[in-house]
Computed example of a mutant assay.
Amino acid sequence: MRPDLVQVLLRVQTDLFAGAPARARGGSLAFESLALALIPRAEPGTLRYVARQLAQLPHTPGSVLRAIAARGQDLGLAHTLPAAGGAASSAAPTGPSPGLRPGGAPPAVSTGLDLALARDSHALLGERLLQDMVARARRVPDLAEALLARTDLPARSLAPLYLHADQARRAALRSAMAQDGGGASHLRLVRPTRERIAALHDAADIGEKAAFGARLAQGLGLPAVPDWRFEKPERHDCLALALLALGASEEDAIRIFLILDKALARDVATVFGLVEIFRRTPRSVACALIEAIYEISIALPQRSTAPADVPRIIDQASAAGRGLGATAREALRAGSRADSPAQGRSTGGRDSVRRAIRDGG
Rank of each mutant, 00 (worst) to 15 (best):
D227S: 11
L222H: 02
D227W: 13
A214N: 02
D202V: 07
F212D: 03
F212P: 07
A204T: 10
F230D: 00
A242R: 08
R235V: 07
K232S: 10
G213Y: 07
L243N: 01
A248N: 06
A224N: 07
A248L: 09
R235G: 12
E208R: 13
A217S: 14
L244I: 00
L246S: 00
V225N: 07
L246G: 00
L200K: 03
A240K: 10
G221D: 08
A210D: 03
D202F: 12
R229W: 03
Q218D: 07
A224M: 07
K209S: 12
R229A: 14
H236P: 09
K209N: 12
P226I: 03
A248Q: 05
A253L: 15
A242S: 08
D252C: 05
A242Q: 04
H236S: 08
L216V: 00
P226C: 05
V225H: 02
A245E: 01
A224I: 05
A203T: 06
A203F: 11
L243V: 00
G207N: 02
H201R: 14
W228L: 01
H201Y: 07
G247P: 11
E234Y: 13
F212A: 11
A199L: 15
A245N: 01
L246Q: 02
G207A: 00
V225D: 00
I206C: 08
L241Y: 10
L222R: 03
E208V: 10
G213E: 05
G207Y: 03
D252K: 05
R229P: 12
G247H: 11
A211P: 09
K232T: 12
D202A: 15
D227L: 09
K209R: 15
D227P: 10
R215I: 04
D205G: 04
A240M: 12
D227G: 12
A224P: 05
P223R: 10
L241H: 06
A245C: 02
I254G: 14
S249A: 06
R235F: 14
R229K: 14
R229E: 11
E251H: 13
P233M: 06
P223M: 06
I206A: 06
V225P: 06
I254Q: 15
Q218E: 13
P233T: 02
